[in-house]
Simulated scan of single mutants.
Amino acid sequence: MELQLQEIREQQKASWNKSSPGWKKWDDMTMDFLQPFGDAIINALDLQDGYHVLDVAAGTGEPGLTIASKIRNGKVIITDLSDEMLVIAHENAQRAGLRNVEFSVCDVCELPFDDNSFDAISCRMGFMFFPDMLLAAKEMLRVLKPGGKIAASVWSGPEKNGWFTAAMSTVKNNVELPVPVPGSPGMFRCAKDGLIAGLFEEAGLTNITQIELPGKLNCQTADTYWSFASEVVGPVVSALAQADAETKEKIKSEIIQLINQTYPEGNVSINSSAYIISGTK
């Protein structure tokens, strides 16, 4: 891997390790938020009991843990670049009483598995953060058995993901942020319709399908949304780290005001949208 890509990988690893306490704190709400996309991935994989499944960039363990609960006679290997996130995933597996899971801290662009090792591969909200997305897809294809399926999800456009833009637009109005390099890892890097489908085709997958799926972040209150966004949503957390106390308080006040104006009757439930893409080796 090129030096520049290695540097991006290390930055990603440090960022996810740093944010892991927030993910642990908000794991229940985050997993409820992301569950529809994980369920769609699982449906696309046509799982069978006894399958050997790889879950890439699983963070705190999903959808790999749910997959493990469905294929009790199979096995799931859950991977992530962040060792701190996988500590949480391991705790979640123990809490669920799952014994057919293993964990591997590794880079998707250099998977430590033999060719043709897995019957299916899942990847929920990971591709947009990979330094080299095509190399990642090819590595997944390499370790997938012939006839096996890969299914992934990525966020669609920011205009359909108010759960992110409500906070980030306010942050940008108050903090001067560096302009990201085109194509660099980011939340909406894969938002272009058909981008990942095209990537899958270039990697060598066939029978490629794509659907767009809506979702909701159920926060109930504006205060809960602020706490979640400021502790879990990576770009917001990073931007706030650059702000002084007065600016942070101003951002907090403006975000809460925006959410209360948008949901005057409370019951904050913010829109999201993602693409689910699958293909066969």
Rank of each mutant, 00 (worst) to 15 (best):
P131L: 06
K281E: 03
G198L: 06
A136H: 07
W155L: 09
M133Q: 12
L135I: 08
G157F: 03
L135T: 12
D27S: 15
A197E: 10
A167W: 07
A222E: 08
T262N: 13
Y263V: 10
D132P: 04
Q242W: 07
L98Q: 02
G61L: 02
N267L: 11
N174L: 13
V53T: 08
W23G: 04
L135Q: 13
Q48P: 00
N43G: 10
D27I: 07
T221L: 11
G126V: 06
A166L: 14
A136F: 08
G204D: 09
M125K: 06
D83E: 12
G279H: 04
A239V: 07
N218A: 13
E202F: 02
A40F: 01
E212M: 13
S15N: 10
I255A: 07
A197D: 04
A96T: 00
L5Y: 14
S20V: 05
F103M: 07
V76K: 03
D119Q: 14
V101W: 00
A58I: 06
P180Q: 10
W23C: 06
L3F: 09
E212T: 14
V56A: 13
I78S: 03
A120I: 10
S272N: 13
G186D: 14
D244R: 11
E102N: 09
G279V: 07
S117P: 06
I78C: 09
I276V: 14
V143S: 09
G147M: 10
I77S: 04
Q242F: 03
I88S: 05
Q94F: 00
A274C: 08
V236Y: 05
F228Q: 01
A14N: 11
L213R: 09
N218K: 14
Q12C: 04
E84W: 01
L65A: 01
N73D: 15
P264V: 08
R124D: 03
L111M: 11
F200N: 01
G162H: 15
E231T: 14
I270R: 01
F118K: 05
T66I: 01
S278E: 04
F113V: 01
F228P: 00
K149D: 05
Q48E: 14
W226L: 12
E202N: 05
I276E: 02
H52I: 04
I150N: 02
Q12W: 02
C109W: 00
V175E: 05
Q257I: 04
A14K: 15
F228A: 04
G74Y: 03
S82F: 03
Q242K: 15
G147S: 10
E201L: 08
I150F: 15
D132Q: 12
G126F: 09
I251C: 11
N161P: 05
L45N: 00
Y275Q: 06
N260G: 09
E10M: 13
K172G: 02
W23R: 13
F33N: 11
L98T: 02
V87L: 12
S169P: 02
A166Y: 15
